[in-house]
């Protein structure tokens, strides 16, 4: 008991600590809402332009992908806005690329009620709060090899953003290089982004059905694993979203998404990518549709083909969970696996 401090002194110390903490907590609480208000006051996108909207300009590796070095040099570039889209809880909070804002895939990029992408009104509100305008360079990155960041890029481009890029090597490379991380979220001044719909980046089930029935000529790429494609398995272990049939959309070719990446998670070179897809008959001469299980991994391949190689590509985000569950649409099931059969 010799180490005891007198109760009086401890009491005083406690009061001091608590007071200091309250002051600090108060400050951090007072700072934050500023960024969100201006966007909320603005009326959301009123005009919903025709389906095609502004066309995508020419892309290419240098305009679609940024390296970690480039991003590190452009952290203070006022025209560059960084967006993290990770799905591991707490990842952004415990350290993000300085200046990056956090977009939550489950609520910010999809509509939580209808199975759809986020509404234009909500998207515009969120994007303005993130300090983004139509002329901003938007760099997205995230966990899981940028799957959800690629989905984010697809949504940004559908809603009229012009300069959308992915961080090469995703969050993993930035971390592996021990680059700077911040925990305090930025409080950007509101941007002026106005939604303009770009309509040819997405297809729905009837469009795909037309392709299958031969009324339209398009290449279908299934980017899932070979076992899912052949119908040996319904879904890899750990994925709860299922279809009650196994196999793939008739006519699709199987090019797993990961083949577009090097060992370290960076994109392969343009020549390698072009050869990879050409080998399976995808050379950009025919419009392409990509799909996967729920749509997020297919947006990765969508990004590679449309933004890096400049092909005409649409994402079928309904993907296998919609197609495989839909009554009366044809499937190809080489393995012959039947749901519930014992």
């Amino acid at each position: 008991m010799k180490s005891m401090v007198s109760p009086h002194r401890l009491g005083a110390l406690a009061v001091l600590i608590i007071t200091a903490a309250l002051v600090l907590a108060g400050c951090s609480a007072a700072q934050q809402p500023a960024a969100q208000q201006p966007a909320a006051q603005q009326p959301a996108a009123q005009q919903q332009p025709a389906a095609s909207g502004p066309t995508l300009g020419a892309r290419g590796f240098d305009k679609a992908v940024v390296s970690t070095e480039w991003l590190a040099e452009n952290l203070n570039n006022p025209n560059v806005r960084i967006v993290e889209v990770s799905v591991v809880p707490g990842l952004y909070e415990k350290g993000h690329i300085p200046g990056a804002v956090n977009f939550v895939w489950h609520t910010d990029f999809v509509d939580t009620v209808s199975r759809d992408i986020v509404s234009p009104e909500r998207f515009q509100e969120l994007v303005r709060a993130a300090g983004i305008s139509n002329d901003s360079t938007v760099v997205l990155y995230g966990d899981n090899n940028n799957w959800f960041a690629a989905w984010g890029a697809w949504v940004f481009l559908q809603y009229g953003a012009n300069d959308v890029r992915l961080l090469d090597g995703s969050r993993a490379k930035w971390e592996a290089e021990s680059r700077e991380l911040a925990i305090v979220p930025p409080t950007p001044a509101a941007g002026t982004f106005t939604v303009a719909q770009r309509g040819n980046l997405r297809v729905k089930l009837p469009d795909v059905l037309q392709v299958v029935e031969g009324q339209q000529t398009k290449d279908l790429i299934d980017i899932r694993s070979p076992d899912e494609f052949s119908g040996k398995i319904f879904a890899p272990e750990g994925f709860p979203e299922l279809a009650i049939r196994a196999g793939h959309i008739p006519g699709a070719v199987n090019i797993p998404w990961k083949q577009a990446l090097n060992e370290d998670g960076t994109f392969k070179s343009v020549d390698e990518l072009r050869a990879l897809y050409a080998e399976k008959g995808i050379d950009g001469s025919t419009p392409v549709i990509t799909y996967c299980r729920i749509g997020e991994r297919a947006s990765h391949t969508w990004f590679v083909l449309s933004q890096i190689l400049g092909y005409d590509v649409a994402l079928y985000d309904g993907s296998w969970t919609e197609w495989g569950n839909t009554v009366g649409v044809p499937i190809a099931n080489p393995s012959g696996t039947v749901w519930g059969e014992r």
Binding site: A14, I17, I18, A21, L22, L24, A25, S28, A29, Q31, Q32, P33, Q36, P89, G90, Y92, E93, V104, I183, V184, P185, T187
Partner: peptide
């Protein structure tokens, strides 16, 4: 008491706006 004060400081960074309808991660 100590973790209350400490968490308040951390939460203010993790979820700057407690009225947003979200809960702090984890």
């Amino acid at each position: 008491a100590v973790s209350t004060v400490g968490y308040a400081l951390v939460l203010g960074v993790f979820l700057p706006n407690p009225f947003s309808g979200r809960l702090p991660a984890q």
